[in-house]
């Protein structure tokens, strides 16, 4: 066999190895999103480190971990708070998603894990498990309403709220930053479907430019 696949795909030669680089899972759809006109804009969020923190909510553990991280952890499920370089989303009674734009994924896992361990808790690296999208514009909530059944009225889902729900048939994590600014996190294997459905919806709602 040669370095060329029989099906015609050119393979990189061993003499010039690719240096392992982070690839955004939705890189292939970036151009489609940028070409969308009108609002809301749909943009790819930068890749960030993330851990799934599991710890007993009672007994002071969340407060202690939050203090060590220099922020707060949300006190009730389906809400989020800010961390120094990320966010803390409460996904369930004993489950949080903690992100960091600064820390390396493995360091972030080690750090949070070390903070949780004394309380019988643990952190698992899920940085590459999900990918984030930002929906920005006055029609952001309306766009989501075409695939998402939860109450997205600003009074019910204002800044500080988050929710695990479905968009179309895919599980997503919605995060409200402002009335016109929402983030959608989705497992990477479903991300292509979610973007395609968002784009399909957005195009059908916007008048075709003449």
């Amino acid at each position: 066999m040669t370095a060329e696949l029989s099906s015609g795909v050119e393979l990189r030669s061993a003499s010039s190895p690719v240096v392992l680089t982070r690839r955004h899972p939705l890189e292939g759809r970036r151009a489609t999103l940028e070409a969308l006109t009108g609002e809301p804009s749909i943009t790819l969020e930068p890749l960030v480190s993330a851990v799934d923190l599991r710890v007993d909510p009672d007994g002071g553990a969340p407060e202690a971990i939050a203090a060590a991280l220099g922020g707060t952890l949300p006190r009730s499920p389906d809400t989020w708070t800010e961390l120094p370089d990320g966010v803390a989303l409460r996904l369930g009674p004993d489950e949080w998603l903690l992100t960091s734009a600064a820390a390396d994924p493995h360091r972030w896992e080690d750090r949070v894990d070390a903070l949780a361990a004394p309380h019988g808790g643990m952190a698992v690296d899920v940085s590459a498990q999900r990918v984030g999208l930002r929906l920005h514009g006055p029609a952001a909530r309306d766009l989501l309403a075409f695939g998402c059944s939860i109450d997205l009225r600003p009074t019910a889902f204002g800044r500080g709220r988050c929710a695990q729900t479905l968009f179309g048939q895919a599980a997503v994590l919605l995060v409200a930053h402002a009335e016109d600014d929402l983030r959608l996190h989705v497992r990477t294997s479903f991300a292509g479907y979610v973007v395609d459905r968002l784009v399909d919806t957005a195009r059908s709602l916007r008048p075709t430019p003449a």
Partner: peptide, 8 residues
């Protein structure tokens, strides 16, 4: 490997 580095 983590999925970010998988293609490379």
């Amino acid at each position: 490997v983590d999925a970010w580095h998988a293609p490379d």
